[in-house]
């Protein structure tokens, strides 16, 4: 889901930087008020945790493996604003140091995964979990549904950004200059693989980690 450099035109990646900026500013403001001096190590460790979640491969059917992005899980564990910064920092490090995702696409990738992914996941979780007890079954089911929906929303927004390229950003003679696939190809392709496979991986990892905490350390969820 990490969009590399060269896939989005300047109009799109510029807009996405502008769209992500108010969320980064709001998160910094919010955390400055709530976390005080403790925020620096807390955010850094949260970001490192966000980075390493993607390294945990889990076995899926038929010997294949997959990994989760962890946006909803981190939002449940450290709250949505801290999660926004943590996932963003992890994405920035991946883009600058590891070439996972483009530098020009940092705004778009952060908006898709750190803003949309985190807030959709967190809102769904709060809505479904309601006032249920920390150790209740409803909590992990809420986490699974939230993670599934959140990942699919992120994938859909990514697909729309890619699918808009042949319409928004093309040469004067109409030839595509960036990602060449229109919405009618980009959206179903991304949606299918996330609806049928990656969404379930995300849901499984999120629910299993929540169940682990319910059993071993329920305080982490309160």
């Amino acid at each position: 889901m990490h969009i590399p450099d060269g896939y989005l035109g300047p109009l799109t990646y510029g807009t996405m930087y502008a769209a992500a900026l108010p969320f980064w500013a709001a998160a910094s403001w919010k955390l400055n008020r709530t976390l005080k001096a403790k925020q620096a190590p807390f955010l850094a460790i949260g970001a490192a945790f966000s980075f390493v979640i993607m390294m945990f491969n889990i076995p899926i059917i038929g010997g294949t493996t997959g990994h989760a992005t962890g946006a909803t899980l981190i939002a449940i564990l450290i709250g949505p604003w801290a999660a926004l910064i943590a996932v963003s920092v992890a994405l920035i490090i991946q883009a600058i140091l590891f070439g996972d995702g483009g530098i020009t696409a940092i705004g778009a990738n952060c908006f898709n995964m750190a803003v949309a992914g985190v807030f959709v996941g967190y809102a769904m979780y709060r809505m479904i979990a309601g006032d249920a007890a920390v150790t209740s079954r409803r909590r992990w089911i809420a986490a699974a549904v939230a993670a599934y929906v959140s990942l699919n929303v992120s994938a859909l927004i990514t697909a729309v950004q890619l699918g808009l390229q042949p319409i928004l950003e093309r040469a004067p003679d109409g030839q595509p200059l960036y990602s060449p696939f229109p919405l009618s190809i980009a959206v179903p392709t991304m949606a299918l693989e996330h609806l049928l496979l990656f969404g379930f991986v995300e849901a499984a990892v999120t629910a299993l980690v929540i169940k682990y905490f319910q059993k071993n350390d329920p305080e982490m969820l309160s």
Binding site: F56, N57, I58, V205, L208, V209, K211, Y212, D217
Partner: peptide
């Protein structure tokens, strides 16, 4: 195995 991986993520957190 999935349960084991999830417990490792929990331990890391």
């Amino acid at each position: 195995e999935r349960g084991w991986v999830a417990s490792r993520i929990g331990v890391i957190f």
